[in-house]
């Protein structure tokens, strides 16, 4: 009797890529819900737009490459990219910018390099960087959280704002939008106000901006879920946040009047979201255990450096992209000691 053959192992675990991506999507839910609560329907519309664009372009590119698009779309990686990008965008960004950023993420940052697994840069952050660099004005115009402005953007308001650029009725853009807490802090510091004075304003909560800090908290919940499910390793988020807190702490201790507290850095901007969902993208991150610690820590340090002295208020996207470039080198120099390797046995 004849049989088909294959290489061992002849058993296969039940893990697959779709499952990995699906769990990350699931973990995004609490954070997205919080965003929706504080910033209204624009968040949801952005998500829809981005997902639609991502699927569309994956389909087109795979067709152009002469391959079956279905498994690629079904592995959820493109949809995850779209979601990560959409979450990072201001909730009233013009529709075409959202679509442009997503298309860039999928076509240029992901598929041009060969698709999932081959992209050297985090596609969502590449798309974000494109938009931020190209349209900095729109990209830095965030709504005030509803707890601050007292107004939550309804579905039709958000729709009009996104698709026709019409400002919401209640007081127009100026009343509803403002600088993000990070931007606000940076601006006020540049006027030589002291942190104590700055924190008097109504926009501040316990750690970061009111509302903002809770969004971060809910992303933290999702992120811890991923760590618990072992979808992501604890090393990158932990080292990134610890490094950020440490370096922020050092400066804060030196002069708390002009350097915000570590808690402010952790709970403002995209630090938590980035630590658990962006920096941990396995394709573009470091993979060796020691490498992950270094990779995460350097992202944390870069976030602080760019936030404090850089040209843009938040820094997670640039930090991650920069470290993406360094990941292969880090991996090379942090190869774990091979079992039985005597030269390195002392370590």
């Amino acid at each position: 009797m004849e049989f088909p053959v294959a290489s061992s192992p002849h058993l296969q675990g039940d893990n697959d890529i779709q499952r990995v991506m699906g769990q990350v999507l699931l973990a995004l839910l609490p954070g997205v819900a919080a965003l929706w609560w504080y910033f209204g329907w624009g968040v949801i519309i952005n998500l829809g737009l981005a997902i639609f664009t991502a699927v569309f372009w994956e389909w087109v590119v795979m067709r152009l490459r002469g391959r079956d698009p279905r498994p690629v779309i079904a592995d959820l990686s493109g949809i995850l990219t779209a979601c990560l990008l959409a979450i990072a965008l201001p909730p009233t960004l013009p529709w075409w910018q959202t679509m442009m950023g997503t298309a860039f993420a999928i076509v240029v940052a992901k598929q041009l390099f060969g698709g999932l697994g081959y992209n050297p840069f985090n596609p969502a952050m590449a798309g974000y960087a494109l938009l931020l660099v190209s349209f900095p004005a729109d990209m830095t115009r965030w709504l005030e959280p509803s707890v601050v402005s007292g107004h939550s953007l309804g579905l039709s308001e958000a729709w009009n704002a996104i698709f026709s650029g019409v400002a919401p009725a209640a007081g127009g853009w100026d009343a509803l939008t403002g600088a993000t807490p990070l931007d606000h802090m940076r601006t006020e510091l540049s006027r030589e106000h002291l942190i104590g004075e700055i924190r008097q304003s109504a926009v501040w909560g316990d750690f970061g901006g009111r509302g903002w800090e809770w969004v971060a908290n809910w992303f933290l919940v999702g992120g811890l879920f991923l760590v618990w499910r072992k979808v992501i390793s604890w090393r990158i988020p932990a080292s990134m946040l610890v490094a950020l807190a440490l370096i922020a702490g050092i400066f804060w201790v030196i002069d708390p009047d002009i350097h915000p507290s570590p808690a402010f850095h952790l709970f403002s901007g995209a630090a938590i979201f980035g630590a658990f969902f962006i920096a941990t993208d396995p394709v573009t991150a470091s993979t060796t255990p020691r490498g992950q610690l270094i990779y995460g820590a350097l992202i944390g340090v870069l976030v602080f450096v760019i936030r404090t002295w850089g040209g843009y208020p938040d820094a997670v996207a640039f930090s991650v992209l920069l470290m993406n470039m360094a990941a292969p080198t880090i991996d090379y120099y942090t190869q774990p000691r091979v079992f039985g390797d005597q030269e390195k046995q002392d370590e």
Partner: peptide, 15 residues
């Protein structure tokens, strides 16, 4: 025309 600044900045040159 809103201008896609990226094209003028260094990354645009590479792309």
């Amino acid at each position: 025309y809103p201008g896609v600044l990226l094209a003028i900045l260094p990354p645009g040159a590479f792309m």
